[in-house]
């Protein structure tokens, strides 16, 4: 048992002819908060998507808490993972999407209790009690019976965070959680993410363009380009003392845009 929550070993992912991840080696310790940043098309979102099993990888191994994600051991042999194995690994991971992806025909509470009830088999009452606690935690207890279309973007994203917490993940993936939000709503969502990071209960992998926020909450920042990690370090080193030319270019462009 290592203390790694996530390990990528020479992971390759391609869409048709386009290589997105090329021999990616990457590891995250338990409880670590890691930000992935990089130019668009660099593969940063793909890292999260293959972890969440939304995409299949062509080569390499991904370990989640030392267990392979896409493979399993059967009678001592490493074979392709079956559905039960994938579901087991997947249950350790929660994901928050750029576009929230709330279920529009269900209330905020309905969104939160759907998976606990129909996947875990909790009673409606048990699921609701827990969901209400989590909705209160993201500051939306009073919006529990509202539908997504009645909520602001920031509120929707906070519901989406509460929804993924209802399944008790140990690893949280945030895929540009504030990119689809109006500027004045970014703060409320980042506050929730910061609280989660500070609680130390979760291993967090964050893809974001919010440089200031990444600097504050991350234990480590990975700069990824061309499907490979170009540079990784503690935030202060990454932002104040970038070593590779590619990262220096990227940072100067991002700062210029401010």
């Amino acid at each position: 048992m290592t203390d790694f929550a996530i390990q990528f070993d020479k992971v390759c992912k391609a869409y048709d002819d386009l290589d997105v991840l090329t021999d990616l080696d990457f590891a995250v310790r338990k409880g670590e908060v890691v930000t992935i940043m990089g130019p668009s098309g660099s593969g940063k979102t793909t890292v999260l998507r293959v972890l969440m099993t939304l995409e299949e990888i062509q080569d390499g191994v991904i370990l989640v808490q030392d267990e392979p994600l896409n493979k399993m051991y059967k009678n001592g042999d490493l074979v392709d993972a079956d559905k039960a194995h994938v579901r087991k690994i997947r249950s350790k991971i929660g994901m928050v999407f750029q576009n929230f992806n709330l279920f529009p025909h269900m209330t905020a509470l309905g969104n939160c209790i759907e998976a606990p009830m129909y996947t875990k088999g909790l009673s409606k009452q048990e699921a609701s009690e827990e969901a209400m606690k989590l909705l209160a935690m993201v500051g939306l207890a009073d919006k529990a019976n509202q539908y997504p279309s009645q909520l602001s973007g920031g509120q929707q994203q906070r519901v989406a965070i509460a929804r993924s917490l209802c399944m008790h993940p140990e690893i949280l993936l945030f895929d540009e959680p504030t990119s689809a939000l109006d500027p004045e709503m970014v703060g409320e969502v980042l506050k929730v993410i910061r609280d989660l990071a500070d609680s130390g209960r979760y291993t967090i992998l964050l893809v974001t363009h919010q440089m200031g926020f990444a600097k504050e909450v991350s234990d480590r920042v990975c700069f990824i380009d061309g499907g490979k990690i170009v540079e990784e370090n503690i935030p202060s080193e990454i932002f104040e003392n970038p070593k590779t030319e590619r990262l220096q270019q990227f940072l100067s462009k991002v700062l210029e845009a401010r």
């Binding site: 997947r90 249950s91 994901m95 992806n101 993924s164 399944m167």
Partner: peptide
Amino acid sequence: EAAIALNIK
């Protein structure tokens, strides 16, 4: 994708 992430059957 949200359903997959929530492990919904």
